[in-house]
Design a protein around this nucleic acid. Sequence first.
DNA 1: ACGTTTGCGCTTTAGC
DNA 2: GCTAAAGCGCAAACGT
Lengths: 80, 80, 80, 80
Amino acid sequence: MAEGTVAADQLRLFIERIERLEEEKKAIADDVRDVYSEAKANGYDTKTMRAIVRLRKLETHTRQEMDALLETYRSALGLR
Amino acid sequence: MAEGTVAADQLRLFIERIERLEEEKKAIADDVRDVYSEAKANGYDTKTMRAIVRLRKLETHTRQEMDALLETYRSALGLR
Amino acid sequence: MAEGTVAADQLRLFIERIERLEEEKKAIADDVRDVYSEAKANGYDTKTMRAIVRLRKLETHTRQEMDALLETYRSALGLR
Amino acid sequence: MAEGTVAADQLRLFIERIERLEEEKKAIADDVRDVYSEAKANGYDTKTMRAIVRLRKLETHTRQEMDALLETYRSALGLR
DNA sequence: ACGTTTGCGCTTTAGC
DNA sequence: GCTAAAGCGCAAACGT
């Protein structure tokens, strides 16, 4: 079998793995939508919920960034 | 137990389900990145690969639209 | 003068306004780079500085998001 | 006054200069958005406009690369 | 100087 | 239909 074919097959496999993963990702995104719909059906305000999720994510990021900054300080000051 | 507490618990569960799903989604996105990295390590150009994935997605979408249109025609014409 | 020409002139003016603004934006981005360079020349660690700027921006966003969420609560509960 | 304080003050000034510049940058980005909105209100398709701006920027960039190459040749040949 | 990695801006999509 | 947020691609910045 020619080398070109091997390479083409390998590339094809990479592409297919990516496409499979992206399908999974989309499926999960749909699940998220479903949860919001279910919450809405139970009388919750989705706009508020989205704001809460966003805020909590932001707080997590801030916390992680603070830790990272501390690490950066240590490195910059040569502490260990 | 007060109704407010029940509602708060339920809301909390919805939020947690969403956050869990978003973590899964992020994990898959990371996997996609890994596949691109692996492909790059095997000598493939990731930018081109991304273009291919995008194109194939578009073609899939176009194909689905064509199928939908065909269905519409069938229904309109009473064919089955 | 034809209408088509008028429209073309108007579009051209919009495009040029945008391009002018984008040049200004780029100039400011260059200024930011210069400040980092100057700080580096004064012995400061730019990586740490960037982390600080990023953290402060994140904290500002978190604060704004908290305010927005509070507003959303008020609206959702019909408070005013 | 301690040296540490001086350094802290100087660092603080650098950070504030950067933050001020980034605010200006954001203000200009908002102006750009406004121009697109105004163009849209006048019946123009913003997506197409963005494509035009992108294309012209690319052409400018290509032109600059050509100029730079010419300069390189001049230097290499000792022409002036 | 180059390659890798991360941050930033843009585009597109989803919600209202 | 418009506004806003999420995802993606690119480019600059860091480390080797």
